[in-house]
Design a protein around this nucleic acid. Sequence first.
RNA 1: GGUGGACUGGCUGAGUGGUUGAAGGCGGCGGUCUUGAAAACCGUUGUAGGUUAGUAGCCUACCUGGGGUUCGAAUCCCUAGUCCACCGCCA
Length: 428
Amino acid sequence: MLDAKKLRTDLQAVAAKLKTRGFELDTAAIETLESQRKALQVDAQNLQAERNARSKEIGKAKASGADIQPLLDVVADLGDQLKQAETAADDIQQQIEDIYAGIPNLPHDSTPVGLEESDNVEIRKWGEPTQFNYQPLDHVAFSEVRGWYDNDAAVKIASSRFSVLKGPMAKLQRALTQFMLDMHTEAGYEEVYVPFLVNQDSLRGTGQLPKFEADLYRIDKNEAHDTSDRELYLIPTAEVPVTNLYRDEIIDAANLPIKLTAHTPCFRSEAGSYGRDTKGLIRQHQFEKVEMVQLVEPETSYQALEELTQQAEQVLQALELPYRVMALCTGDIGFSAAKTYDLEVWLPGQSAYREISSCSNFEDFQARRLKARFRSGQEKPQLVHTLNGSGLAVGRTLVAVIENYQNEDGTLRVPKALRPYLGGLEVL
RNA sequence: GGUGGACUGGCUGAGUGGUUGAAGGCGGCGGUCUUGAAAACCGUUGUAGGUUAGUAGCCUACCUGGGGUUCGAAUCCCUAGUCCACCGCCA
């Protein structure tokens, strides 16, 4: 959520900035609503002040034994007036909040301007696309031959876009997870284990709600025994539970930066992506991811974004997987992000670079709704800046390892860094 | 799953429906005293919104969330959440 004050005082500048990401802000509607809000709020508050004063008089009169009936007559309809004013003010307030909740973050000045994926800018490249002296297989073909990957079984027990991994491939995925967590904890990230189901407040905090409900899996409550009015959602990323650890918290500045890492499954309904990446592990309803999250002081957040991105790159470098770093353009960054780097790994099966990590600085956009603040000394609490990045998407890393390390005879070399996690095996 | 109890500022803990944003204590901050520190003593100490040139003043809201009763709610009622205790079940 953007700063309401900034929206009021700097509306045209905000609208201009949002336009670079293809978002049209209805400034006229906002101005109208804001001036109505102001009037109604002042109205309601004046009535409240009057009621408070009158009620106090009644209290005093009663205490001194005077007749309070005349006083009661005076305030007879005050309650109704107040209720009306409050209802009107709440209604406008709600309309304003609904609009504000749908406004995306302002892109940082260093985010390249552009409306489409093709406007993203390559920042750097590491390694060269892996060379083969035969036509390399994609991960599906390769792993099906070995009996490691069973799409039909997944469809039978769940539906499409799920997968069953067997034997060495299942083990390889676990090794990758372990390896990544170890790298991050050695670099100073604290490992956390968190719920895979979260409530609506958490999803609002990180910006998935209200706009992206369709992308989420919701657990409908069982009316037979559940009278609660809470509904839980499967997490689309560990970002949600991990960042929400600090919702409604005031952090001692001495404890910043906070750097966390977590491994979780992620669940995405992938609504509207029919026909894209239908084969294999690239786009799944359920996948494994190791995530990094940082909470930092505002002045250091762009430095932190570089550090976070490099930490994700370290994983690819350690696995010796070729990749490139893309700065997403204003039209391609996510709703809550001010700046995002995508890491794209080389996939021989597709002869293309594909996203394997996304590292973003949200500045105070998430923190504002989370009320995640810090305080140094006696100063007023201030919003933190939040960042996160995949380090990495494990499922896609598995794809990358299989496609880049395959041998023509159907065997798979184990990246050196992973061997300690697979009992020293060099070939699978 | 059943039964009972509780939820108050950073923490602890009072609070007969009426100058209660909320006693007291702890902690924090400032000061007195001291060569310095401790102790003691004095003062101070929440968040957000509105108004405003203003981080001044004034007004409003906030005692777990939401709703209600009332001229007036921390206090009464309903509802949800959370925690505690006992019983049952369980990886």
